[in-house]
């Protein structure tokens, strides 16, 4: 059986708008990936626990609320606690000021996609990043 790229898409925060996240989820599915869509109001704890249970390659977090620094740093530290640090590609989407962007990358977030990013760019980024590791990913 061919291995599929698995992606978790989550939308933290209380604002009830997940159109962007849904569009990305649909595009990744159409690109042949298995997308676990967990929807709205996700806490970092929920995101990381779901990602571990689902054994995903990628976590995609859509943030509009401006709480990106707290959320991403919490996600990264929870991944570390779980022993999954550096094993899952973490990226995000939303309006993020440039200086925060640098901070997020320093935390280990792989990429932040700004508003209006073409979904094809996201697909390509994931394929390239995961594709390379895919050979060895067939461990045991």
């Amino acid at each position: 059986m061919e291995r599929k790229i698995r992606v978790l898409i989550a939308k933290p925060g209380l604002d009830g708008h997940d159109r962007g996240a849904k569009i990305v989820a649909g595009a990744l599915r159409d690109a042949g990936m298995e997308v676990i869509y967990v929807g709205l109001r996700q806490t970092p704890e929920m995101i990381v626990e779901s990602a571990i249970q689902e054994d995903v390659d990628v976590i995609g977090i859509s943030i509009l609320s401006g709480a990106h620094n707290t959320i991403f740093s919490r996600v990264m530290s929870l991944l570390k606690d779980q022993g999954a640090e550096g094993q899952i590609l973490v990226c995000g989407g939303g309006i993020i000021p440039q200086e925060d962007r640098e901070k997020l990358l320093a935390m280990g977030v792989s990429r932040m996609f700004g508003p209006g990013t073409a979904t094809s760019e996201i697909v390509e980024f994931i394929r390239q990043s995961i594709g390379e590791g895919m050979g060895e990913a067939q461990e045991t």
Binding site: D57, G86, Q87, I88, L89, V90, R101, E102, L105, G108, V109, S110, R111, M112, F113, G114, T117, F125, S129, I130, E132, G133, E136, A137, E139, T140
Partner: peptide, 20 residues
């Protein structure tokens, strides 16, 4: 767009024994 190649890749292969 900024991206972070440092953090990339990934899945630490586990030995079967370790996994079990």
């Amino acid at each position: 767009m900024a991206s972070n190649t440092e953090a990339m890749r990934f899945r630490r292969p586990w030995s079967e024994q370790e996994l079990l």
